[in-house]
Design a protein around this nucleic acid. Structure first.
Lengths: 198, 198
DNA sequence: TACGTTACTGGACACTCTGTCTGGAACTGG
DNA sequence: CCAGTTCCAGACAGAGTGTCCAGTAACGTA
């Protein structure tokens, strides 16, 4: 009943071929033949696994998101009690392992559909924690939760993307996440001179 | 010597057709004929103005960026002295006027190329102000300027995108930017319970 | 208003890529 | 080993691309 080895090999090759080629030439410029050629697979075989290029990309990113979710899940509970920043570090660790695919997604390849999914999923997770914490502490947030979640995710993904595109990495994952948390909690981008009331 | 009226009309129609159709069906799914049909222009005419679909989109976004730059320029000087948040408000105002095109870009249509350009341009502007301010106050930033700029732009664009996709608008531009500034300056997403040293 | 110039039109062209379908070869798991 | 499946190479019609052309309409200027 287990999956055929040939199937696994073929799918893996197509996935790798796609990711590599998108980084080289961009998603839109690729033909199915480009991908199958790189993967060393017959073009007809492609269509027995995926409907088209978009289908392949969608499935690849969906798998990645599931993988991330499984890593996040055990960390969710403790985060609702005291904010630790562990989920953020886990995200950076995961991205470090799957660097190329993360770069493809964060670049917005595929008309940004994958990025939007990734973004929305992150917002959902963050918003969940926010509301759970609000219920726990009873404190009314100063700003709307939706805006907070969007801003926080935007910050995360922008820094993550920048961090992944650098070569060599400008700093270890621990340091990048520590800085992000510092920023989020304490704010103050500027040393002085801004009056918030204006 | 002035530009021919027919040329202006044709280009404008193609631009409007593109933007409207991308919002309806997504960039990748469009053919040149779809666009020319919507714009009520012969397909051959398209090719006498633009090389291909990408060329049209690139030029449209470039024009938008120039327009934004012209609005930002007079505000740059005073921002380097005391941080006012005026450029941010100007961005939101501009986006409000060109709502549809901004949505197309921020969604990452066109494989994210337009969004990346927009993003990088914003980072460039912000980084400029940061370094100018650092030179002015002499204060050493707590975190690397590059990271600060990326995070700040990520926050801005995420909230801007969210704000533009809502219908009706959840709040006026002034309020959205005020909240963003509040967040950036004072931080503290959470009421309590986080120890930054962990 | 008349005129030379420029832009738009609609149709045709070769070309590339798509998605589907063969029959036969190669490989797999039991 | 063998029944079952996956892979392969090649052929196919259809859609979209980018270019070209000759005829027509609109333009700016004098």
């Amino acid at each position: 009943m287990a999956e055929d080895r040939r199937t696994r090999r073929t799918r893996r090759s197509l996935r790798d071929g796609l990711v590599a080629l998108v980084l080289e030439r961009g998603y839109a410029g690729l033909t199915v033949e480009d991908i199958t050629e790189r993967a060393d697979v017959a073009r007809a075989t492609f269509y027995s696994h995926y409907r088209d290029k978009d289908d392949l990309f969608t499935r690849v990113t969906t798998e990645l998101l599931q993988e991330l979710d499984e890593r996040m899940h055990p960390l969710a509970e403790e985060t609702e009690i005291g904010f630790t920043g562990k989920p953020l570090l886990e995200l950076f660790r995961h991205a470090e392992q799957e660097r190329d695919l993360y770069r493809v997604i964060l670049r917005g390849e595929g008309d940004g559909k994958a990025l939007r999914t990734f973004h929305d999923e992150s917002v959902r997770r963050v918003a969940e924690v926010f509301t759970a914490r609000a219920a726990h502490t009873g404190a009314e947030p100063r700003l709307p939760a939706e805006l907070l979640a969007r801003a926080w995710v935007g910050e995360q993904l922008a820094v993550l993307h920048w961090w992944l595109e650098q070569d060599p990495a400008p700093m270890p994952a621990e340091e990048a996440t520590r800085m992000l948390l510092d920023l989020a909690v304490h704010g103050r981008f500027w040393a002085s001179g801004y009056d918030a009331s204006t």
